[in-house]
Design a protein around this nucleic acid. Sequence first.
DNA 1: AGAAGTTACATGCACGCGCATCCAATGTCG
DNA 2: CGACATTGGATGCGCGTGCATGTAACTTCT
Lengths: 129, 129
Amino acid sequence: MTSDPALVERWRSLLTSYNEVAGHLERALQETHGLTMGEFETLDRLITVTCEKRRMQELAADMYLSQSALSRTVARLEKGGLVCRSLCEDDRRGVFVTVTEEGLQRHTDARATHRAILAEHLGAQTTAG
Amino acid sequence: MTSDPALVERWRSLLTSYNEVAGHLERALQETHGLTMGEFETLDRLITVTCEKRRMQELAADMYLSQSALSRTVARLEKGGLVCRSLCEDDRRGVFVTVTEEGLQRHTDARATHRAILAEHLGAQTTAG
DNA sequence: AGAAGTTACATGCACGCGCATCCAATGTCG
DNA sequence: CGACATTGGATGCGCGTGCATGTAACTTCT
């Protein structure tokens, strides 16, 4: 119970797989599209969703980024012209995030890289490297 | 081919699982034993192995940490008295890393926390949360 | 309405990371 | 032996993160 080697094994696999893929993904996205993995994932979440505007907290709930990390990530994306932050009138604490056309374009470009890296480094190992 | 939603799905699962577990693990290890996840994993590698001494690069190859990250991690562990760095006489560029008794003790303590967190946050989800 | 509590996001701070680079010790070749 | 490339590891630097906190906008309770 307390000594469950299989569990540790699974964790090491997860750790290895994650770092393998994340490392390559981060590098590839960065040097090809100037995007952090978190930035790409954020764009991805923003675009995948049906409604065009999303509030920060919805985004945060959807993904793994902490609230502060998301805040800064969106700030960076906005600074790069990839998204817009606009005030929510219903609840003026809230912030809506919208993808700009440039953001959409960048995401589309980056998606190719993304898929390629996944295929290369995640496709090989069936379940756990 | 280029559009393989299953692959992306797997990646998102991996991402979510990893961050879920890693987050809790990091916090738990930190506040209970004053160890980073990387520090714990390093100790773990050092101890699991049969031979008592390990060279930096062997360690690095075994785990996901980059060379620089490992260097600093070991430096921190040494500063905390958990490992010792000793020169390798055969190749005086090399550095041997040895776990001290205190390091062994700390690892044993932390292992319990480690297992508990894994059971709690990795045991629940069968393959991919 | 006014005070106290809660929620949404931003920000100061310290920290670990990767990359590029530096330094010392080997190895190679003429 | 001396010059050049290579390897093992340490370190300067910039960056993204989480935690704790700050600020503004709701909410609740009296």
